[in-house]
Design a protein around this nucleic acid. Sequence first.
DNA 1: CGAAAGCTTGACGAGCTTCAACTCCTGTGG
DNA 2: CCACAGGAGTTGAAGCTCGTCAAGCTTTCG
Lengths: 214, 214
Amino acid sequence: MPNTASPQQSGIGAVRVYPDKTPVYYQGDAATRIFRVNSGVIMTFRLLEDSRRQITGFCTEGEFFGLSPDGEHMDGAVTVTSAGVQSVSISALETDADLRAQLLDHSWRKVEDAQNLMMTLTKSSSEARVAAFLVMLAERRKRRGAKQDENAIEVRLPMSRLDIADYLGLSRETVSRRLNDLQGLGLIALPDTHTANITEIDGLRRKAGTVVTG
Amino acid sequence: MPNTASPQQSGIGAVRVYPDKTPVYYQGDAATRIFRVNSGVIMTFRLLEDSRRQITGFCTEGEFFGLSPDGEHMDGAVTVTSAGVQSVSISALETDADLRAQLLDHSWRKVEDAQNLMMTLTKSSSEARVAAFLVMLAERRKRRGAKQDENAIEVRLPMSRLDIADYLGLSRETVSRRLNDLQGLGLIALPDTHTANITEIDGLRRKAGTVVTG
DNA sequence: CGAAAGCTTGACGAGCTTCAACTCCTGTGG
DNA sequence: CCACAGGAGTTGAAGCTCGTCAAGCTTTCG
């Protein structure tokens, strides 16, 4: 593992840039480092024996991933887009109290996100799930300070339909259908496969029922 | 709030005993304390506007609950059985490094559990979910040092069928049907509604596919 | 420019939810 | 002591949503 020299900033060590669709670590790997997204999008996922997949999260700028209690990664991580990733040895936790505090806060949020996702997965129709997914992405863009007209939020969908499906617990066909339905209802526009223009965020929220904040 | 004097053990403060089916805190309450189960069973859940419910976990001896990043509880908590609960002010985190370390570890496990549950919820048939639920309870009993014959594990089901349903994302009718199916297959016996005797844990595991460890 | 991968659309069937009726158990009051 | 009411659980029947299979279409990339 070729690690570049580490700029010491708040306990954060080596920085590295990955091309898109590149693994960062594999499920089952020894968990020796903690990761944080600098730029781009990372997704984490778990695999079953029969090669089914649950995507457990899409991580964007500022988010931690790769946390593991037992020294072994329970999920895998790949880049969706090209991404910059910081990492720090897990042993740095011993000495860096600030990092520990950050991680504790972040972990609680992760639990919250996971529970939100559970609500979406069990209690919602396919339409509600897809709507919730779009709302989540819109919220995330807004949080990142993308100041824009409320009535034409452009959301990027760098991941494939199958990725979305495996996140929402649906088939790729259903994702495709529901996206088109929402377009037919005039809530969104789909100029190309990887872009969604939200024209009625309120209507979308109503469809979503519960907002996924993860 | 009648808090008894606090036995200081590893930063854990006030102890309190609740009868069964008693709220410990409500969704939306200010999160000023952190809780830990001393005895009995607690369940945490989230509500939607339309009064649907997702049970996010059943907590038994030793488990923490009520962790919240934003000073407000995102879930509610009630006792399933009569239960002893320790609690400590959230401000104790500042001074107690040992508690912080425990919580960080516990939080990561919670994320893992939530993700396991997600796998179960999205990728499994109703039969697999119910089987996974029973295996989870059996594992938990074993972990608690209940040394017993592998071929007659008695599992208590103190929660209602609806509670199980809301945990597994099913209807109570389906839970009922699948439990009876498993009994018909000779994998379990149901002497009464709140007891399941697992007679073939391996067969049950096979049905479950993925084991829920939460 | 052509091949491969990703996406969409249609038809069909399985599995779960919903609705409804009935049973069982518990507790309460006459 | 028994009748009755209410909640929880079970069981049956019908309907709908979503997954699966299959074919056609579009985008991407060498």
